[in-house]
Amino acid sequence: MATRHSRSAARLMMAPAVVLLLGWMLVPLIMTLYFSFRNYFPLRPDRVPGWAGFSNYERFITSSSFWPSVQTTLVIVGGVLVITVLLGILLAMLLDQPMWGQGVVRILVIAPFFVMPTVSALVWKNMFMDPTNGLLAHLWRVFGAEPVAWLSQVPTGSIVMIVSWQWLPFATLILLTAIQSLDGEQLEAAEMDGAPPLKRFWFIILPHLARAITIVILIQTIFLLSIFAEIFVTTGGAFGTRTLTYLIFQRVLESQNVGLGSAGGVYAIILANIVALFLMRIVGKNLDA
């Protein structure tokens, strides 16, 4: 049993981490809130700083680039989620089957996750999606088709493709871990009772995976809402690939309209917190177990 002495020692040991994270959370958050109510243009001495009330919040959502950016964000996050979860389930079930060289295949499948975002974006952009010298252009020409200028003709789709390649390993790995914890005897019993494969999948495997799928969706959503490098080095936000994150980045650092960008930042924080709330509930339940 913990003594009073060890309890106070424990509190002391927790203090540095708690204090640092508290500072890391509160200081920038309060500053962002403060800026969001100000007119603030650090590079424009001719514009007098002052209180803006809610005008930044209003202007951010009424600007012509707001709704397109929300739409782009939804398409990218939604597209990547659908692709990675569906393919992830199929891949995890495949990798769970008996085969030769399973360990090596798993390594091949997981590898993209370890490639830094700037590298995967640039490699895809140039070596695969380049309309003259890219590998896909070569492939298209083999079949006598006109090469596609991926990042200008289907820019959002191309980014979904690149990001899905990066995140498929994550979904696969987590779903594989979950599948491997499935009780083999249950499946066997179902098979002996004559349940066809599709039914075994629908009534046994899928319900078993439900929690893992939810976790994959929530964690990926949080990371995908803030993808940055993949857009930064491919299109730079052009051709309608400006996500909410990218729009705020441009407002704050490129056009140095700090008030407007900060109001956008507050919206982004609220959005992320809504997703986070669901994730925390699941993780929290797991802590009690």
Binding site: M25, M31, S226, I248, V252, L253, G265, A272, N273, V275
Partner: peptide, 11 residues
């Protein structure tokens, strides 16, 4: 879960 871009300018 705090989105980095939300606190970009303060940092």
């Amino acid at each position: 879960m705090l989105p980095a871009v939300g606190v970009l300018y303060p940092i």
